[in-house]
């Protein structure tokens, strides 16, 4: 399997927060969960790998290409969806699509129609008329219609009801089977139990772990930290709380 995304020693310094030394790799068809508490640095990591913010150091490569040098080429092959962000909320979906597709050389109208039907999206609606779950599905449709090989999703399951969340995670698994790699940030650990192959755990801007989920759980189990991701996260984060109040 080829490496889709490689992040090495990523660093971003803010006056009151530093994301430090974040490294991870995503392979073709892999689902990676980016986990951590609110404010741990998940969104900063995603913004960095999308070149939306300037990093203070580190290397980001997609498909073996450096992000800074091949940005437009790389963006042809990736898709992004933010949980709560919607674009042009009062424009009809078909109008947004008619503009968006002109930017992608590999746009496939048949794939677009297939996903619109699969996700039961009506292109005569506007984004403001869609539920949160449908908005995520619309963003996924746009990404998949231009043949994205990697989906980067920032908290796509936040704000979704349990059924929609489960449905979305099921979709992730189907897409992964087709070779699409998925990186999604979440603080809902049960999402990862259902579909993730690997995790990157960030705690207060520091990399806690990056690797396969089974390895991590096995390791934590043997150390008596916990048997599920939730237990493990609570163990690490609570430990800090105890130190604070000590």
């Amino acid at each position: 399997m080829g490496t889709v995304l490689s992040v090495k020693n990523l660093r971003k310094e803010y006056p009151k927060f530093t994301l430090n030394n974040i490294s991870f790799e995503i392979e073709e068809g892999m689902i990676m969960g980016l986990i951590g508490r609110n404010g741990a640095g998940k969104t900063t990591t995603i913004k960095s790998i999308l070149n939306l913010i300037h990093t203070s150091g580190g290397d980001i490569e997609y498909f073996g290409m450096n992000l800074a040098e091949h940005e437009t080429e790389i963006k042809q092959q990736i898709g992004y969806a933010g949980g709560a962000v919607d674009y042009y909320k009062k424009k009809k979906i078909k109008k947004i699509i008619s503009v968006t597709k002109t930017f992608y050389s590999d746009w496939n109208d048949d794939e677009y129609r297939k996903y619109m039907e699969l996700f039961e999206l009506d292109e005569d609606k506007t984004p403001s008329e869609l539920s949160e779950g449908m908005k995520v599905k619309l963003n996924l449709t746009m990404a998949l219609s231009h043949g994205a090989k990697l989906l980067i999703l920032d908290e796509p399951t936040s704000g979704l009801d349990p059924v929609s969340r489960d449905e979305l995670l099921e979709i992730f698994k189907i897409l992964a089977q087709k070779g699409v790699a998925i990186l999604f940030s979440t603080h809902i650990t049960s999402d990862l139990d259902k579909c993730a192959d690997s995790i990157t755990y960030i705690k207060k801007g520091q990399l806690q772990f990056s690797g396969t989920m089974s390895d991590y759980i096995e390791k934590c189990k043997s150390e008596g930290i916990g048997e599920t991701l939730e237990e493990i996260m609570i163990h690490y984060e609570k430990e800090n709380l105890h130190e604070k109040f000590a």
Binding site: K75, Y87, F103
Partner: peptide, 13 residues
């Protein structure tokens, strides 16, 4: 309408 974010996420500089 998040136009700037939409634009910079497109394959453009």
């Amino acid at each position: 309408n998040n136009d700037i974010l939409y634009t910079v996420l497109l394959p453009v500089s």
